[in-house]
Structure formats: structure tokens, C-alpha cells
Computed example of a mutant assay.
Amino acid sequence: MTRTDGPPVLHQSGAAGKQAASRTGRPPMSERRRQAVRLEISRAAVRLFASRGVAETSANDIADAVGMSTRTLWRYFSSKEECVRPLLAIGAEETAARLRAWHSDSPSIAMFGGEPDRQIREQLRQMIRLTRTEPGLRAVWLAVHNEAESAFAKALAERAGLAEDALTPRVQAAMINGALRVAAEEWAWSGDIDEPMSPALVETIRQALRAALSGLSA
């Protein structure tokens, strides 16, 4: 099998792509199903990266692991490293939603909801650990947090009745995002997989969130 780690240069998109799909008679994939497929690919990529290393894992390997062609894989991701994005992004949208709904008289730690199940938690830990030594994965990890920060700032601005690019929600979002990223890295590199967050780590997050959210109106 010919191996390639880059998507084909030529592909159909826009109206041409829709017409091609129409000709095949295949119904369009629902967004929920598409997200499920993306997460399945992400989890397969993490398993392979953790067991073989990024350099020794090709896009073909990832595609084979989920039973699809490499050509189909490129419809979901632009590179093999990007395949990990859905797993790393778990919880960001939920956190933004909770920021919009959170009341200042509630504990700040309460805005961050339930944790993923043990299997996904273990894969998250493996993935975050790999970001320390794999520049390509580190870039994806930081990009995910950059996007999350924008979502947090928008949520905070909405609840405060401010413009999306206002300084205060942007600063608060940066503090919240930084606290969560550092906490996740600390947990991944030194935590016990059977204990999602140690009491000391929970307290660290709590203190950071108190500082980030001080003065935030309900």
C-alpha cells in the first residue's frame, strides 16, 4: 500500500462536491454522525501515536484502524496530527455554555461539568503527554486552546452585555483558559489516571478561577 501523510491536492468542494454526492445517491451525513466519526478517528490516532509514535504512524494506518480509505480520512482532517483535535477539544463547548449560564453566587469550580469516562480520560492523558515531545501535536493542543479562549471570551461578553472584542472578557477568558490548560497538563504529566484530579489540583484550579472571575457580574 502506498503511504502518504498529506491530503490529495485536488478534491471536490462546494457545489461540485454536493452534486457528486447527489449523483451517488448517498444522503448527507448528519452533523452528529460526522462528529462521532471524527471522534472515532481521533481516538484511533491517539492509540497509534501512543503505541508507535507519531513519526511511525501514517495517515494510512489511522484510516485502516477505523476501516476507511485514506482519501476519506482527508475529508475530515488536513493532516495526521490534526486527527487528535476532537479528543483534545472535549469539553470546550460545554465549558463555554456553562460560562454563559453560570451565576456569580455559585462556586466557580461548579461551572466545569462532568469528566469523560475512564477510557477517554486515559486517552486524553496519553495525548496531552505526547504534546510535550511532539511539536506537531503541541501545535494542535495550543490551537485548540486558542479556539476555546475565543469561545470563552464570547460567552463572557454575552453574559456581561459587552462587545465580543471587549478587553475585560478577553482577559478573563485568557486567565480561565490558561488555568485549565496548565491544570490539564499537570494532571496528565503527574496525576493518577484512577483519580481524575487530586485535591491539590482542584484547589489550584479553584484559586485561578476565583482570580479570573473576580468582579464578574451574574
Rank of each mutant, 00 (worst) to 15 (best):
L142G: 02
M1S: 15
A218F: 00
L10Y: 13
G17T: 09
V46Y: 00
I109M: 10
L10E: 13
A101S: 14
L87K: 10
D61H: 03
R129T: 07
A155K: 01
L213R: 06
L209D: 08
G53D: 00
Q123R: 13
L10I: 12
V140C: 09
S108Q: 11
R33V: 02
A20N: 09
E81P: 03
G161F: 06
R3F: 08
R138K: 15
A21D: 08
R43D: 04
Q12M: 12
R26E: 07
P27G: 04
F112H: 12
M111G: 05
R26S: 07
S198A: 15
A97F: 02
A16K: 14
V140K: 09
S106G: 11
A89M: 03
R181T: 08
M1I: 13
T57N: 01
R3E: 11
L180P: 00
G178V: 02
G136F: 02
E81F: 06
T4N: 07
G114E: 12
S106T: 12
R71A: 12
S51W: 09
E93K: 15
R32T: 13
A212I: 03
L156M: 05
T70M: 05
A179W: 00
A45S: 14
S217W: 12
P196E: 10
V54D: 03
R159L: 02
A212C: 00
A110V: 07
L88W: 03
A101N: 11
A184F: 07
L216A: 00
L201D: 02
D5N: 13
L87F: 09
L130Y: 06
G53M: 02
R118V: 03
E186F: 13
R210M: 06
M1E: 13
V84H: 07
G215V: 03
A96E: 01
E40Y: 06
D194H: 15
T204S: 15
L142T: 07
P199I: 11
E81M: 11
L124S: 05
I41P: 01
E94C: 04
G215M: 00
